[in-house]
Amino acid sequence: MYDVVLLVEQELSEPDAKRVVDLHQDLPEPVKYHVLVPCHNAEAGVEASISALGTADLYGAGLVDQRQELAEAQKAIDSEAKDCTGRSVQRLRALGYQADGGISHDRPIDALRATVDKVTGREVIILTRPHIVAEFFHLDWTNSARRHLGVPVLHLLEQDETGRARS
């Protein structure tokens, strides 16, 4: 089995799924895709924003009262990420390939490394929108994955249903 881990920023479009499987159509062994969708942590995001603004002393205590709303927001975020993963997996399966998927609340590269190790991934494909500044400074997922993983890493730009690059 040739295991490929896909780190995606958002749901695989049909053109993206087709591009991915086209890369492996001539392999002599079966291919299995493992879709990984990073999931934002709502509470950590709010706390980081407050800290970045230097207002933790003013608003930090107010977070205690917001825990229920943050928990509900996290449930909605997780639900959307799971739906995105499910639809992405279904698109790959509809093209005749084995696929599974999951979400992660860990840092994307940490989750990617763990998934590659778990499934003995032989290749990583990262699908994102263009991130020009992060890419320029080599802080993007692809450059980080290349530094931390011992497998080939390919970066593809996401496409919408018409085949145009998403922005």
Rank of each mutant, 00 (worst) to 15 (best):
A73S: 08
L112T: 01
I109M: 08
R91A: 09
A99W: 05
K75W: 09
T115P: 03
E72V: 14
D83F: 13
R113E: 12
A114Q: 12
V119L: 05
E80C: 02
E69C: 08
G121M: 09
V119K: 12
R107Y: 15
G102N: 08
Q74W: 12
L92C: 03
D110A: 14
E72L: 14
V116I: 03
R87H: 13
D110S: 09
R91W: 04
D117I: 10
T120F: 11
S88M: 02
T85R: 09
K75L: 15
G96M: 00
R122M: 15
S79D: 11
L112F: 13
T115C: 11
C84Y: 00
E69S: 14
D117E: 15
E72Q: 15
E123W: 09
Q98C: 05
A94F: 04
H105R: 03
V89W: 02
A71H: 09
A111G: 10
T85G: 00
I109D: 04
D110N: 12
K82M: 13
R122I: 11
G121W: 05
A111P: 00
I77Y: 06
A114T: 07
V116M: 01
K75P: 04
E123F: 15
S88A: 00
Q74Y: 04
R107F: 13
G86A: 04
R113L: 14
G96D: 08
R107P: 12
E80I: 05
D110V: 14
E123G: 11
A73N: 08
A71W: 08
D106W: 06
S79R: 14
P108E: 03
E80W: 10
G102P: 10
Q98R: 12
A111K: 01
L95F: 01
A114C: 10
R87L: 05
H105N: 04
I77M: 04
R122C: 13
P108D: 00
D117W: 08
H105E: 11
I109R: 06
K118P: 02
E69V: 12
L112H: 02
R93F: 03
Q98H: 10
V116C: 01
C84A: 12
G121R: 14
A71G: 08
E123R: 14
A81M: 01
Q74C: 07
G121H: 12
D78V: 01
H105D: 07
E69T: 08
G102R: 02
Q90I: 02
D83G: 13
D106Q: 13
H105I: 05
V119W: 06
D78S: 07
K82E: 15
S104E: 01
R91H: 09
S88E: 05
Q98T: 10
K75R: 15
I77A: 02
G101P: 02
R91F: 02
A81G: 02
K82A: 12
A76H: 03
V116R: 01
